[in-house]
Measured scan of single mutants.
Amino acid sequence: NKFNKEQQWATYEILNLPNLNEEQRKAFIDSLKDDPSQSANLLAEAKKLNDAQA
Rank of each mutant, 00 (worst) to 15 (best):
Q38L: 09
A54R: 04
E22K: 12
N41H: 10
E45S: 12
E23H: 10
Q8A: 08
K2H: 15
N4K: 03
P36K: 03
S31F: 11
S39L: 11
K33S: 12
A52E: 12
Q24S: 03
W9H: 14
L43D: 00
L49V: 09
Q7I: 07
D34T: 11
L17D: 00
F3G: 15
K2W: 13
K33V: 15
I14H: 01
S31Q: 13
L17K: 00
S37D: 06
N41L: 07
Q24M: 04
F28I: 04
P36L: 03
L15D: 05
K26N: 08
E6L: 12
Q7H: 05
A10T: 05
N21H: 10
A54E: 10
E13G: 07
W9M: 14
A27N: 10
A10I: 07
D34I: 08
E23Q: 13
N1G: 07
K33A: 13
Q38M: 12
N19D: 06
I14Y: 01
N41W: 15
T11Q: 14
A46I: 01
A54H: 10
N21A: 09
A46G: 01
S37L: 06
A44F: 12
K26Y: 09
S39K: 03
S39F: 15
W9G: 03
R25N: 01
L20Y: 00
L15M: 13
N21K: 08
N41I: 12
P36Q: 02
K5W: 05
Q8F: 08
F28K: 00
A40E: 07
D35V: 06
N50I: 01
D51H: 10
D35Y: 10
A10W: 05
I14A: 01
T11M: 15
S39N: 05
F28D: 00
N1H: 10
Y12L: 06
N50S: 10
N4A: 08
P18K: 09
L20H: 00
W9T: 05
A46T: 00
A10R: 03
K33D: 08
K47P: 00
D51M: 11
E45W: 14
N4F: 13
D51L: 14
A44L: 14
A40L: 14
L49W: 06
L20Q: 00
I14M: 04
N16R: 13
D30G: 11
Q53N: 08
A52W: 12
K2D: 15
A44N: 09
E23I: 14
K26I: 07
L32Y: 02
K47W: 14
N16A: 10
S31E: 07
L42F: 11
L32M: 06
A54S: 11
L15T: 09
A27D: 09
E6K: 03
E23A: 13
E6T: 04
A40Y: 14
L43H: 03
K26A: 10
F28Q: 00
P18S: 06
F28H: 01
L32N: 01
E6V: 06
N16F: 03
E6P: 03
D51K: 11
D34M: 13
Q8K: 09
A52V: 12
K5I: 04
Q8L: 13
N1L: 04
